[in-house]
Design a protein around this nucleic acid. Structure first.
Lengths: 182, 182
DNA sequence: AAGAAAAGTCAACAAGTGTTGGCATATGCT
DNA sequence: AGCATATGCCAACACTTGTTGACTTTTCTT
């Protein structure tokens, strides 16, 4: 079965949706604007995805692609995680779309919580730390907060930091959240 | 000059606005809903504040009320700051309104950046740390991220933590951001 | 008590939203 | 080639939004 024509427009819609949701958030990103970006008719978006909610659900599918951390020495966990997160944030519009939308849209917030519970927490559980839920929450709080300041609010010194500086500052924090006992 | 009748409705509008902006964010919070909460006519909101933007600007006025930290030993700075932030977050709808709105609204983001630059950064500058801008950004990233996870996303273990636990976990992080050299 | 100013109500507007159905075009199969 | 199906466009719908202007009621001064 060859590549259908519809596959390409479908992909174009999804790409445009991720970009718009990421730039404007769920409510301000309009079907019409997404359709214009994808150079098609707004009705096509409905035909392909049925509803704005379902379009978002499809566009916000996301895999953190967390590496296996079990072979690392404990004091390098934070650095590795932070470096992974920063590159993951910058290679994909999806996380930005998710963050921008989850603040005002309940479905997006659900998605965010799900990524947290289904991807981050299990990875930490595999490290056999105590209270993996709490530690996963702490890691989320620092990484999401950093992303908020860097990509959304664009607070000056945070937004312009190099990857190495980010790792140097946040790495030890994450390491402590993973290894220190309360 | 006695208390005008208008002062009370003005205050009622502002309270309702803060609540709605905090619960729904800037775009989903409608003038009509705010007016309904304040038990007045939507047209009154316009008469009192002129426009939705100006209403938000008035409702989002905020003072962090940061204490003077210069007398504290350096290793207690983080604990004190974190405890102050948590109580400040929970006693006032304004910060939630600001956080929820700043993600999709540029004026709200400006306000957020302003609080950061005009209140947090100068306080740290008074502590004579190196690179106060960077450290203020780091503090913002952790505190805003924690607020996001606790009050907006309501990620389970973070949302239910006691104040003491919050201080125990975040305090050392903030202390390190303020005292450690890069 | 009369009149001015303040405070509040009502109905409507123009614009933008998600969504729908009908109709045209292109594509693939036999 | 001819038909069925997939793909696409257009115009319109019902609704909500911020905002406005005319009108009524209350409040206060003189």
């Amino acid at each position: 079965m060859a590549e259908r024509k519809s596959d390409r427009t479908r992909a174009a819609i999804l790409a445009a949706a991720r970009e718009r949701f990421g730039a404007d958030g769920y409510e301000r990103a309009t079907i019409r604007a997404i359709a214009a970006d994808a150079a098609i008719d707004p009705a096509m978006v409905m035909r392909y995805f049925g509803t704005k909610e379902k379009l978002f659900a499809a566009a916000a599918e996301f895999d953190l692609r967390l590496p296996d951390l079990r072979d690392l020495p404990p004091d390098e966990l934070g650095d590795a995680l932070v470096r992974h997160f920063v590159t993951r944030w910058e290679g994909d519009d999806t996380l930005r779309a998710l963050l921008r939308s989850s603040v005002t849209n309940e479905a997006a917030a659900d998605r965010m919580r799900d990524i947290f519970a289904a991807q981050l927490a299990p990875t930490l559980r595999a490290l056999a730390v105590e209270e993996p839920g709490v530690r996963a929450g702490l890691v989320a709080s620092q990484t999401l907060g950093f992303a908020l300041c860097r990509y959304i609010l664009e607070i000056a010194p945070i937004a312009t930091m190099s990857h190495d500086e980010v790792v140097a500052w946040l790495g030890p924090t994450i390491t402590r959240y993973l290894t220190s006992s309360p």
